[in-house]
Amino acid sequence: MSTFLQQLVNGVTWGSVYALIALGYTMVYGILRLINFAHGDIYMLGAFIGLYASRWFNAAKDPSPVKALLVLLTSMLLSALIGMIIERLAYKPVRKSPRLSALITAIGVSLLLENGGALVFGEDQKFFPQLIPQKTIALMAGVSISNQQLIVLVVSIVLMFGLRMFVLHTRTGKAMQAVSHSHMAASLMGISVDRIITFTFMIGSSLAAAAGVLVALQSPKIEPYMGIMPGLKAFVAAVLGGIGNIPGAVVGGLVMGIAEVMVTGYLSPTYRDAIAFVLLIVILLVRPAGIFGKAVTEKV
């Protein structure tokens, strides 16, 4: 029993990282019907920006929670800017083109970020400094959580809760929902659809960057291709929850994280990566709209 609970703790922590990345996929899809395949690479950039930021703040030699927070915020902010630039330069020009063009553009941006990353950062692994030394906190007999896991969990929950409040209760958040429903109707309200789209990319990118920094806190080896697998899996998580659906992305991410950890623990680590795609196949067969996705019936 305690093994199971321990796996659950690990799974939820890991899943919250997927959830953060999946949110970006689902929000951009909701607003543009675009699968932003470069999104996983923003997660990678987030980790690298975090690495450089910890050098600027001299956080490796003199770590402190405040500095860790600064590193996180710097990475989120700069990644948001990068998300904005990518949207403006790569996606906006093809917005009126067929959807396939945008998809291919996204794949192009992804390759550019990965190989550009290899060029700028180097292909070899870099070590993310230990900003918060690891401590283990016992929860009950045989079940523990590390302080790093706890941070991942808390930061993820705060970000997701903040996002939810923002989307449901602010003017801009409601405008995002309006744009995701209809660009035309939204612009008839005086909403600048372009601005809302850019903003959505910025939020999604900053969440992915947060995920990158959070992961680097506990598993400090980072490299330019580190975003590919988590990106794919978070995409599957978004589909699992119902792409375009914000709570769905969170649930999908958690399911994914828990499934991975359980498979690793009870079957074999070999199947760890496979489970994501098994889940994808199952959901597409059984419930293609995802757990929360439903065909919205509109009366006419």
Partner: peptide
């Protein structure tokens, strides 16, 4: 404009739709 086919924001409440009408 009130567009053809109404185009209300189906995913928002009536009240939020009105709020969007006053977006500017």
């Amino acid at each position: 404009q009130s567009p053809e086919g109404r185009m209300v924001f189906a995913n928002l409440s009536v009240e939020d739709n009105l709020e969007m009408g006053a977006y500017i």
